[in-house]
Write a protein that binds this DNA or RNA. Structure first.
Lengths: 285, 285
DNA sequence: TGCCGAATCATCAAATTTGAACAGTTGACG
DNA sequence: CGTCAACTGTTCAAATTTGATGATTCGGCA
């Protein structure tokens, strides 16, 4: 009972700062000791332990004897844990589900790198006779582990970016030699003027190669991407055959998009709100 | 209640750190001895044994008399690969070490897929200004995780075989467009008549593309490969500039090989060395 | 098969870590 | 201005971990 209810979590600013420092420290060094943190933060060991308790149940770290460590991610498991830290999971999940339902058996599809397309990979493992071309090591990994005999997974090759995409001359050259029935692409920004865009120059180049390899471009983007412009444009709105987004998209944006894009699908996200931190913040406000 | 069995830990270095080092060490070398780990980690034999006990029941390794080995059965990884990597671990390790010492900084090297070349990857992470081209997802993974700014890792792309090699038209096309200072290649068989060979047709094709991309072919093969002939030949003995094998090779074979190959290096598996993981841990402690 | 050195296991003491209880302090709110 | 809830620090007993000691078992070799 000492570790009270959620009400007690609405802490002073001081506690929150400590929590941030602790998490940052663990991210940086991988492991921290209670005694080190106590010295670093200028508080007692007991306080540090209580902090670690909270952060542990919140899923931000893993308490071990003597300190705490990063939470181990099971890369081969479902995206749940790792993806939890990402924003708009519910929306992305709904979008990925909707996108999966548009994949036709027996074809060859391209899948670009990104968190939404990564989710998409999980939903197409059961589609029959599919050939998938991707520049995402993660997407390939998911499909590879499924081990279906009627599945062909082609990696484009190239240099790996921090976000796990393969880019560069090798990737684009490979894509230039291929023709795909459909391409599923995640983007970082959508606007009427700049079209679809991304902040990474290399990824933009690879994505343009994807676009050139198909007549059927399907863009996956949750509503937070609207009116965001990345450094480099990938394609104009009109080049997309279909855009799949979620119900958070403003009606005005929806009608604007419909003017340029043939099909605009709006996926309804499941209710998926378990973020304790968020709730906590709401309470304080 | 979450309070685990595995994360119970320690005094100077958190037990968690020890566990990570132990698992990494086993994955890298295949086998470790209790006494080695004790000196490596700076703790007593008894502590190491207790750690191995925990990691054993956790399924991360297999305790044997004198130390521990990789677990043979199902891991999260591919069975084919793991199973193979167990055999002749000491020899492969020695060969990989010898091969790493022939890698010149500042160049571009190719590394084919295989268990020996996978080990090689661990030993070249510290070589400066290196560009690596590989068709092995595992090799790329190892080098990618090192995150060195002066490292460029290029994946060839292609279709993934059960043994984790990328093969097919995409892989060969990529390799045809590249020129490498040296290529490090593992093979499944060596004989005077058939030269270097492998049982997998697709891998053979990719490997031939590797050979064609360089003037300096370095073949890695432990002594069990001698007089083994795979389905498909990759290259003749004369095409190799260097062959690196181990002391288990019969003298007769050695002289035969020397007739055709410019350099034949024989690595001694008994030779033990220091390793980077240890120094890093010491620095933290 | 039997022997010997090495490895393992069981047990215990010392050192460290942990959690619970209690008390003091701070800030919010009626 | 007083009350109350929450947070923090201190103390102390219990639990965990570690290394050492000695008995036992294992594995290689003649």
């Amino acid at each position: 009972m000492v570790k009270g209810s959620m009400d007690t979590a609405a802490a002073r600013v001081l506690a929150r700062q400590r929590h941030e420092v602790i998490v940052a420290e663990i991210r940086r060094r991988g492991v921290v000791r209670v005694s080190d943190l106590a010295t670093l933060l200028g508080v007692s060991d007991m306080t540090v332990r209580r902090d670690l308790d909270l952060l542990d149940v919140a899923g931000l770290l893993l308490k071990v004897h003597g300190g705490a460590t990063l939470r181990v991610e099971r890369t081969t498991d479902e995206p749940g844990f790792e993806a939890k830290s990402l924003r708009n999971m519910g929306e992305k999940h709904a979008i990925a589900m909707a996108a999966a339902s548009t994949v036709r058996p027996g074809g060859a599809v391209g899948i670009s790198a990104g968190t939404t397309t990564w989710q998409l990979a999980y939903h197409i493992v059961d589609i029959a006779d599919l050939t998938v071309v991707t520049n995402s090591v993660r997407v390939a990994e998911v499909l590879h582990l499924a081990r279906r005999p009627d599945r062909t997974v082609v990696l484009t090759g190239g240099i790996r970016t921090p976000s796990d995409a393969l880019v560069g001359p090798v990737a684009t050259a490979t894509l230039r030699s291929l023709h795909l029935d459909a391409v599923y692409m995640g983007v970082h920004g959508i606007s009427e003027r700049a079209g679809f865009s991304t902040p990474n120059l290399m990824e933009a180049e690879t994505n343009r190669a994807f676009v050139a390899a198909t007549d059927r471009l399907i863009v996956l983007a949750d509503h937070t991407k609207w009116n965001v412009t990345g450094l480099s444009s990938i394609a104009s709105l009109a080049q997309a055959e279909t855009l799949i987004t979620d119900t958070g998209i403003p009606p005005a944006a929806r009608s604007t998009l419909s003017e340029h894009i043939g099909h605009v699908l709006v996926a309804d996200p499941m209710f998926h709100d378990n973020d304790a931190t968020m709730t906590e913040l709401r309470r304080r406000a």
